[in-house]
């Protein structure tokens, strides 16, 4: 048995040498991906990075602070359009990224104000309205290209000496790692504790000296910052932005990602982002599975309208979400913890 001797061991990033070694191995693997896989898979990983970053932020709001947002696509849109305009104007990428995050963060702080008075379903409606409003407003404004959207120029990545796709992959990975560490630090510091206190009992939180106005607004702002960074990367990834991309469906899927991954956990956000991306991309292929695929084709032909087969991934995504939440309320993070515990005790 390994005992802790100083309190710092509870604070540091890697609690054990083993976790440090595994993380380094994982990083090495991430580093090697461009040399092993085709360019297509790099873009899959990039998409995972986007989802992970937004999920990290949304999880701080939903899982840790206990607030709800059905309008997170709005923050992603704000980040993406800010980045699009700045990149078109020739602003360097690093500044673009930070400004996109901060603009979204500011809007998030404003949206946080109603959360001081509203809870649960009421707050859900306000954020829902926000998300839809952002989509509509952007779609009607000439400076944002209206319904046609904006094109985004490629950023200059020649300094790396690698191909554009590979360099973009590394940029995405590095930003995702930084954002993951940031989310981890927020959750485990006094700020994260205050968020969780508000989630569990806002009365008790206020009598222990937590300023509810300050921390609820901060939670929205932090969450929107992550979404803004995610949005900027989204713009870079798609190379064009249209208002239709940032739909209500996107907001709902982010919420699903967070619940699937595990509320209130950084590992959960990361796993949720990865798995949700895979589900989105791969579930259509289920019709090629022998027998099961045939059954689904048969069902959709007989029961659903002709568009049924195209939407089969939503049906299956819904089914998988229901099953995971029924059998593992802590989401993928719960499964992950159980696997870790099993291996810690192995072979007993």
């Amino acid at each position: 048995m390994r005992l802790k001797r100083v309190y710092f061991e509870d604070i540091r990033l890697f609690k054990t040498t083993a976790s440090l070694v595994w993380t380094l191995l994982f990083l090495l693997l991430l580093f090697l991906v461009p040399f092993i896989f085709k360019t297509y898979y790099l873009s899959v990983v990039n998409l995972m990075c986007l989802n992970v970053i937004v999920a990290l932020g949304l999880n701080i709001l939903v899982g840790n602070t206990g607030q709800i947002s059905l309008g997170h696509a709005g923050f992603v849109a704000i980040g993406a359009y800010t980045a699009a305009i700045l990149l078109q104007a020739g602003v360097p990428f690093v500044f673009t990224l930070i400004i996109a995050g901060l603009v979204s963060c500011l809007v998030g702080a404003f949206l946080g104000l109603p959360s001081l008075r509203l809870e649960g379903p009421y707050l859900a409606i306000v954020t829902l309205g926000f998300g839809l409003a952002v989509m509509v407003i952007i779609g009607r404004m000439e400076m944002f290209g209206g319904r046609m959207g904006l094109m985004i120029p490629r950023i200059d990545l020649n300094w790396s000496g690698l191909s554009y796709d590979r360099t973009l992959y590394y940029v995405f990975i590095i930003i995702t790692i930084l954002m993951t560490i940031l989310a981890h630090n927020i959750i485990h510091s006094k700020i994260g504790r205050a968020f969780q206190a508000i989630r569990d009992s806002d009365i008790a939180a206020s009598v222990t000296g937590i300023n509810l106005v300050h921390y609820k607004t901060l939670s929205f702002a932090v969450s929107a910052f992550f979404a803004g960074i995610g949005g900027a990367l989204w713009a870079l990834y798609l190379q064009f932005v249209t208002p239709g991309t940032f739909s209500l469906m996107m907001s709902v899927l982010f919420l699903a990602t967070v619940v699937l991954g595990g509320l209130g956990s950084v590992t959960g956000s990361v796993l949720g982002g990865i798995v949700m991306t895979l589900l989105n991309l791969q579930l259509e292929k289920v019709v090629t599975v022998p027998l099961f695929g045939d059954l689904i084709v048969f069902l959709s032909d007989t029961i659903m309208n002709p568009s049924g087969i195209a939407n089969i991934r939503w049906v299956l995504t819904g089914l998988i979400l229901i099953l995971i939440i029924l059998y593992e309320p802590h989401g993928l993070n719960g499964i992950w913890l159980r696997i870790k515990r099993y291996w810690n005790l192995w072979p007993f």
């Binding site: 504790r193 969780q196 206190a197 989630r199 569990d200 009992s201 009365i203 008790a204 939180a205 009598v207």
Partner: peptide, 10 residues
Amino acid sequence: FQNLELFSRM
């Protein structure tokens, strides 16, 4: 508090 106001999941 009379009816406990704890941060129950922590």
